[in-house]
Simulated assay, not measured.
Amino acid sequence: MTNPAIATQSEQSPIQVARKDLPLSCPRPDAPVWNMHPRVYLPIEDEVDQTCVCPYCGARYQLVD
């Protein structure tokens, strides 16, 4: 059975982050459920398209500047 919270996050538009927000971690400190999984740091600035996906919850992030 798929977790509805994970499915919802992966189907939404990417969460936009700025360079001032780096290093990028998921879950974000301001997330409503900030302790939903272990904190993982995502190397978004190293990605060619400057997007990445959290391996735990499927949240998609995009670097905008």
Rank of each mutant, 00 (worst) to 15 (best):
residue 7 A to H: 13
residue 41 Y to T: 14
residue 46 D to W: 04
residue 64 V to L: 09
residue 30 D to R: 09
residue 63 L to G: 03
residue 7 A to P: 00
residue 40 V to I: 15
residue 5 A to Y: 15
residue 39 R to S: 02
residue 5 A to F: 13
residue 52 C to N: 02
residue 20 K to I: 03
residue 25 S to W: 02
residue 27 P to C: 14
residue 16 Q to C: 08
residue 14 P to Q: 12
residue 36 M to N: 13
residue 9 Q to C: 05
residue 57 C to H: 10
residue 25 S to I: 03
residue 32 P to W: 13
residue 18 A to F: 11
residue 17 V to T: 09
residue 3 N to P: 00
residue 26 C to A: 09
residue 58 G to E: 12
residue 22 L to D: 09
residue 16 Q to M: 11
residue 14 P to C: 07
residue 27 P to W: 07
residue 20 K to V: 06
residue 23 P to C: 14
residue 22 L to P: 06
residue 35 N to A: 10
residue 27 P to D: 13
residue 11 E to H: 04
residue 8 T to S: 12
residue 40 V to A: 04
residue 11 E to R: 10
residue 6 I to T: 12
residue 59 A to F: 01
residue 51 T to W: 07
residue 37 H to F: 06
residue 54 C to E: 03
residue 37 H to L: 04
residue 43 P to K: 09
residue 2 T to H: 04
residue 17 V to E: 00
residue 59 A to T: 13
residue 2 T to V: 10
residue 52 C to E: 06
residue 10 S to T: 08
residue 50 Q to W: 02
residue 19 R to L: 10
residue 32 P to I: 05
residue 44 I to H: 03
residue 62 Q to I: 05
residue 8 T to R: 15
residue 55 P to C: 12
residue 54 C to W: 05
residue 1 M to K: 09
residue 19 R to A: 11
residue 40 V to W: 05
residue 25 S to A: 10
residue 36 M to F: 01
residue 28 R to E: 06
residue 61 Y to K: 08
residue 29 P to Q: 07
residue 4 P to D: 01
residue 36 M to C: 14
residue 20 K to P: 00
residue 1 M to A: 09
residue 56 Y to G: 03
residue 45 E to R: 07
residue 5 A to S: 12
residue 36 M to W: 03
residue 41 Y to G: 09
residue 8 T to M: 11
residue 46 D to E: 11
residue 61 Y to Q: 01
residue 25 S to L: 05
residue 22 L to Q: 01
residue 18 A to D: 14
residue 14 P to K: 01
residue 15 I to W: 03
residue 8 T to Y: 08
residue 15 I to D: 04
residue 18 A to Q: 13
residue 4 P to G: 00
residue 17 V to N: 04
residue 45 E to S: 09
residue 20 K to H: 10
residue 19 R to N: 09
residue 7 A to W: 07
residue 4 P to H: 00
residue 43 P to C: 00
residue 39 R to K: 15
residue 10 S to G: 03
residue 24 L to W: 00
residue 5 A to V: 11
residue 40 V to Q: 08
residue 16 Q to F: 01
residue 43 P to H: 08
residue 32 P to T: 07
residue 47 E to N: 15
residue 63 L to D: 08
residue 28 R to A: 08
